[in-house]
Design a protein around this nucleic acid. Structure first.
Lengths: 343, 343
DNA sequence: TAGATTTAGTAAAACCCTTTAGCTAATTTA
DNA sequence: TAAATTAGCTAAAGGGTTTTACTAAATCTA
């Protein structure tokens, strides 16, 4: 079953391939009767221009790629990404763009990048120094970094440190000293990569609050956790089994916090009486769970929108050859939202 | 800033373009020293094969398209799709496939399809009769239908009717007679399309339970709702303002149910004392909210996986020219899960 | 040493479309 | 009436890769 192409249609309609192309893309070049005839023939034969050939010649696919730090199945377990992707796609819908996600395949993004016919990337959770990112820069492909340090490209970040500081400060001010910290596991990095921007900044924020009041910072009270409810559960249990008996908990992601709450309740603790908890992100789940999760709010949806706006801006810049990267470092604000997991 | 291509690398390395291609794809055809030299030059120049050209010649992109019934930003607000997409992507991860989503652009999928360089589609929420779907069939592009009636292509569905029947039966058996039904809005269709499979089947299930016991079915107690929490809220409010005073609620999606619960509580009702509620889907939210949502369980994650498995199967069939469509109609079971929103 | 085989590489075709430049016939302008 | 313009269409180039068929040189066989 051979896929029919433009030449087949042209032959059947008794015109040249050029005419068929015109019938779809520049009908004003052709007699309107001819246009109709060609279109009829095309529909009849079930013809549709080959998207790859089209993208190849146009040097443009209308697809944007979102580079994610984890397998998609993991990412989709995290409510943070739901909202973030919603932000991006609200903009996609407006701009008639398609969206494609790419995640590490067997640990590497190279393969995924190599086969992605996209007009640009939104890169989440990677620093500019990252091998794959510098590859893109070298190749001259447009990208925007989200949740990662950038100097050579536009980026969108939030004030991670301040948000974390506020959360930690709140608990410390209420007298807590035995505070368990469930940090993003990226903060602990793999041997070959630098510490990760977001996690580093949140860690610094927590730490600053500790130092300011003179509370002892104990590394063994900081556990790396996957950003998911399961991760939160497991790590809270792990902490407990290591003999830690926290009276408060700082989680670097809402999903982690919610998992931890479940684990705590299962061990007979009462939240917030026995354990006060502050999450991070203010994802939709935070206001859905009972009790409502106190957390650090960040404008997730907007972050996605802004990222795509910046990317679109890059295309226009490339066209006009203007480039002022320094102006493209967007920092969005964070603030504390108190609900039921704090008293 | 011109994007460098295979010819540039070939020239710099002093070989033919063919040699460069071989260096990447069939290194055994070349002297290993030459391979190294070419690869070095390629890295140095930041060369990467153009994905569109590659996909064009290979007639294969390694990308699968998920056709969604609503704008992506809407879809991502529905926890059902989170899990469904997770199922698909878990399989993608295993098979080293990339995933691309497509939603109607300004109301039409045509444009989105036309520019999608995918190896096949997973089509969610459309029937085979749908115009875009028949276009794909005519064009000879592989696809699998999910949540839609199919005869010419593989499909994955759940036993919608039975699940709905069980839910309605449960409430009726407990004596409820004033049951508000918040149905998927697709059940009411646009003028030009047939009633939609899933919604129809769920409607039939509810109805069967009513009829069986002889409870009067009142059309004005059935409201179409968007599958989101907002939709549930708005429609519960709308029902209330129309003077309806239900003692029980059947929602055709968990998101709708949860939205309705919030609206009910805001009006001072107690769940489940004043209002018993059964949702549909058993999405992750169902067990997170307080009180836990009673709902009809369906294996969402598995549905996604099976859909992609079938699609992959189609590719293999196309290669071996075997086709037995009837064997590819998968029906997954549903059952009732009782939590806190029923007594 | 003539002939057969292997090695290392190349030229050219194929994938399918869009676009530019150009051609012919018909119409308008001066 | 000759020259200029327009309408309607086509030929050919270009986009970047992979693959098939082929060549030239080197190695092996008898």
């Amino acid at each position: 079953m051979k896929r029919i192409n433009i030449a087949d249609v042209a032959q059947k309609a008794g015109v040249s391939p050029t005419a068929v192309s015109f019938a779809f893309n520049k009908p004003e070049q052709l007699n309107s009767e001819t246009v109709n005839r060609i279109r009829m023939t095309a529909i009849e034969m079930g013809y549709m221009p080959n998207p790859m050939a089209r993208a190849l010649i146009a040097q443009r696919s209308g697809i944007i790629g979102v580079m994610l730090p984890q397998p998609l199945s993991t990412v989709l377990a995290n409510p943070y990404f739901h909202t973030f992707l919603q932000g991006i796609s609200s903009m996609c819908d407006e701009q008639a763009l398609s969206l494609m996600t790419l995640s590490p395949m067997n640990g590497s993004l190279d393969q995924a990048i190599a086969r992605s016919p996209v007009d640009g990337f939104i890169i989440v959770g990677y620093n500019e120094a990252h091998h794959e990112v510098s590859l893109l820069r070298k190749r001259g492909i447009q990208y925007v970094l989200v949740d990662g340090d950038a100097t050579c490209a536009p980026s969108v970040n939030i004030d991670d440190e301040q948000g974390a500081y506020l959360a930690a400060k709140y608990l410390i001010d209420k007298g807590h000293r035995d505070i368990l910290i469930l940090m993003l596991d990226t903060a602990f990095g793999h041997a070959d990569e630098e510490l990760h921007g977001v996690a580093m900044r949140r860690m610094r924020g927590y730490r600053r609050a500790f130092d300011e009041v003179g509370v002892v910072w104990r590394d063994e009270w900081v556990l790396p956790s996957v950003s998911s409810m399961i991760g939160g559960q497991q790590n809270f249990d792990a902490a407990y089994e290591q003999g830690l008996r926290p009276t408060a908990l700082l989680a670097a992601a809402d999903a982690i916090a919610i998992g931890a709450i479940q684990a705590a309740i299962r061990r007979g603790m009462k939240v917030p009486q026995d354990l006060e908890i502050i999450g991070y992100d203010d994802s939709v789940l935070a206001s859905l769970v009972q009790p409502g999760l106190s957390t650090v709010h960040q404008p997730i949806f907007e972050k996605g929108r802004v990222a795509l706006e910046l990317l679109i801006g890059e295309w226009e810049n490339a066209a006009t050859r203007i480039t002022d990267v320094s102006a493209k470092q967007v920092w969005l604000p964070t603030h504390l939202v108190l609900r039921g997991t704090t008293t």
